[in-house]
Amino acid sequence: MHASEIVACVDGPLLVRGDFELVSSTGEPVERTRRTVALCRCGASAIKPFCDGTHKLVGFRTEPPREPDAVEGSQ
């Protein structure tokens, strides 16, 4: 069991939870208002370093597109 965990979300941000410190490149602490944060990795967020969901608008892909595998019915 590690003190913190980073989840690389498919087609989305890096989710960071646990015990960690978030600092800028000059080492200044980045203000954080929640325990678990989502860090932008698509580059398009307006609230960097945090994710604001914009990755969905820019079609950000972390891997070859994966089609949800529908097995029955249709909408």
């Binding site: 989840v7 979300c9 989305g12 941000p13 989710l15 208002t33 929640r34 678990t36 944060v37 989502a38 609230i47 945090f50 994710c51 604001d52 969901g53």
Partner: peptide
């Protein structure tokens, strides 16, 4: 904006 970008990942997965 910030909170739900976190929540949607946790809620979906």
């Amino acid at each position: 904006v910030e909170a739900d970008a976190v929540h949607e990942q946790i809620a979906g997965r």
